[in-house]
Design a protein around this nucleic acid. Sequence first.
DNA 1: TTGGGATTGGCAAACGTTTTCCAATGGGTA
DNA 2: TACCCATTGGAAAACGTTTGCCAATCCCAA
Lengths: 322, 322
Amino acid sequence: MAGVPRRVTIREVAVDSGLSIATVSRALTGSRPVGPEIAQRAQESAARLGYRTDSIGRSLRTQRTNTLGLVIPDIANPFFPSLVQAVERAARDQNLSVLIADAANDPGVEQAALRSLIDHRVDAVLISPSHLTASRAAITESMAAVPLVQIDRVIDNSLPYVRANQSRPVQQLVSHLRARGRRHFAFIAQPDTIATSFERESAFRELMTDVPLRVVSAETSAGSGRGAVRELMSRWPEIDAVICANDLLGVGALRELRTLGRAEVAVSGYDDTLIAEALGLTSVRQPVDELAVAAISAVLTPDMAATRRELECAVIFRESTG
Amino acid sequence: MAGVPRRVTIREVAVDSGLSIATVSRALTGSRPVGPEIAQRAQESAARLGYRTDSIGRSLRTQRTNTLGLVIPDIANPFFPSLVQAVERAARDQNLSVLIADAANDPGVEQAALRSLIDHRVDAVLISPSHLTASRAAITESMAAVPLVQIDRVIDNSLPYVRANQSRPVQQLVSHLRARGRRHFAFIAQPDTIATSFERESAFRELMTDVPLRVVSAETSAGSGRGAVRELMSRWPEIDAVICANDLLGVGALRELRTLGRAEVAVSGYDDTLIAEALGLTSVRQPVDELAVAAISAVLTPDMAATRRELECAVIFRESTG
DNA sequence: TTGGGATTGGCAAACGTTTTCCAATGGGTA
DNA sequence: TACCCATTGGAAAACGTTTGCCAATCCCAA
């Protein structure tokens, strides 16, 4: 194949244009005014030679990479691609690139990922921690080396974060369903080491202080959702509404209820992924774009230490809740 | 917050250990043998001071970044997160990082993404092109600057690629269904500007040369899949098997068939995403891990020009096909 | 004893850029 | 006319690393 051709350097542009390297740099970056005729000469040469600033050279000098690190707990969880997309969009608006690292739900991998990002000299890190407690060490370690903000999942309130309120949507769901006559609620939870899930479950528990509490735990998969529903319905056949900690569990619940001939039971999911829309599953949409924008601006401001933002979700009602 | 502390440089390690910079470098990278006692001194100093090699300095000198660019057409398409994951795993094994760029199904964005990756001096690029024809220009442009290989979707056979055979699974599906008594097949296609979809559709068409051909086009969404099913069933009520170009369409088809009271019709999807498993939808699993490994090794070998690999998929049969 | 080769430490030169100085020019004011 | 200041071009010094060269040392063989 071609074999990659040597890149054009700023020195060659300088020679070609008869200007000094410094002047060419200034003409191209606008870091200081240059005479109009000079500027044009520099730009023309650069264009003709096909010069593109070498980001490595620039980074070495400026000590900035214009790159953001984003650590997500599990890209296979369909919520996170949408977060990735949002962060990429928001980053592009600031002329930043995004280095994505997947923790594969493993705090060990997460720690390695953080170190790798720091080694790559990212300017800042956004992280959605994989584990409520086990992620802490790596995060505090990282904060010594790079500005960092928790996004979506937050495991430490004393550190910067940008989050969405997870309890209000649960309240809205329950009151909406009560208004429509549902009385016997159940909740299918994920492991409570997932920060957001923990908050969703807590919100549900608080709403149930005066009535029987029906909660079962599940793993993050549709199969697990089905098993959870079987358990719920056999223990409490009176159940008429099931709130799930995410969409995948919701899908499993929906399917198993149909199998059991209890399709009249209301079901809701969480995260409003494609699946929810595809199946008419009521779900909760997180404001990913706003989260991304807020997180990036947070992590770039100097007084970032003060940054704590909480945004609101929107409940999307669909057929699964009648 | 802390304000990021200045990083420890190799010079400080040299001073601390009483060795020269060159020797420290060699002791740490192993680029040339050093005496055992010297090596230990260097390593101890580095460890004590918390030295981490600055990748920018290294990259400037070596002209390598140990970073791979991965351009995907649409991260919201649930197949691609699994590809991303596979590429990340394979890259980690080679001590490479992955810079992910999402083309948002837009060749314009895709071109910008490629340029951005090249500006970031990635060592190589893997790309799953967003458009059968419109992606061409940006790709050939990029190949002049960086080794590149098409992964999964291939739009130009004359350029390096690592792909999965898309027609064989369709053949297997059809013959499996025929063996089980299905006779009247239909296909729900995606836009034929998607390379893999185009191949799936072509395979189906070839199988139908002796029998009526029933194909409708749809967009990549469950809603569109439902509409497609309505159209199919009203035109050809005899249909007893629907093959869909991806899982999302399959979900839509499944749902609409149930609505129409035609749940006995067999349905298959493609890509074997979480959704397929959740709903018991027969689907086709692509060998993402093998694709990733092959693509990376391809793009790193010098005689990459010769690289053309084709791997095989596996059909995963589930309830939706009886 | 001496010569030669292998081993290994260090100096200094890159890699490509931005930016700090300095100098030169020109214009405006006294 | 003389002086000062603002403007803008250029030389050179970083940024942190790897590596080509040279030199020193050591060991072995003749």
